[in-house]
């Protein structure tokens, strides 16, 4: 009986801890869903294999705080933020590739989703 209980507790803990999204996946949904688009998913895991943090967070001006970056499509059309690389030359351009960024499920709030979670009282 003890062993069964232990197994049940362990299973419950594992299922609570397991994060679904990849570590560092950021969802941007301040405006997307209100404008009829899917939320944007930014995968840190891929971008950090090709650029160091400082490139985006120092050179391109992305703030290191969830919800602090108010990025609009008109910024991108003027070549700012994501479009400094996503211009069709350095990386694929924004024209005709809407679904590559706007790829999230509806109802997902802005935030870092693939973050570390424990079963503690907060969400760290």
């Amino acid at each position: 009986m003890k062993r069964v209980l232990l197994a049940v507790v362990a299973l419950a803990l594992i299922s609570a801890v397991a994060a679904h999204a990849e570590y560092g996946d950021v969802v941007l949904n301040d405006r997307s869903e209100a404008a009829g688009m899917r939320p944007v998913i930014f995968p840190h895991w891929y971008h950090r294999t090709v650029y160091k943090c400082r490139v985006c967070h120092a050179e391109l001006g992305f703030k290191m705080e969830v919800g602090a970056n108010r990025i609009s499509m008109s910024d991108l059309y003027y070549g700012r933020f994501c479009a400094e690389c996503h211009n069709g030359k350095t990386a694929w351009g924004i024209e005709g590739n809407c679904g590559r960024c706007h790829s999230g499920m509806t109802g997902v709030p802005t935030g870092v989703h693939g973050r570390h979670r424990t079963t503690g009282p907060g969400y760290w």
């Binding site: 679904h20 999204a21 590739n97 679904g99 590559r100 790829s103 499920m105 989703h113």
Partner: peptide, 18 residues
């Protein structure tokens, strides 16, 4: 099936798997 990506998004196949 990561709980974030919409599987009905036609462009989801273009994305790189982790």
């Amino acid at each position: 099936n990561d709980g974030l990506h919409d599987k009905y998004n036609p462009d989801v196949g273009k994305l790189r798997e982790p």
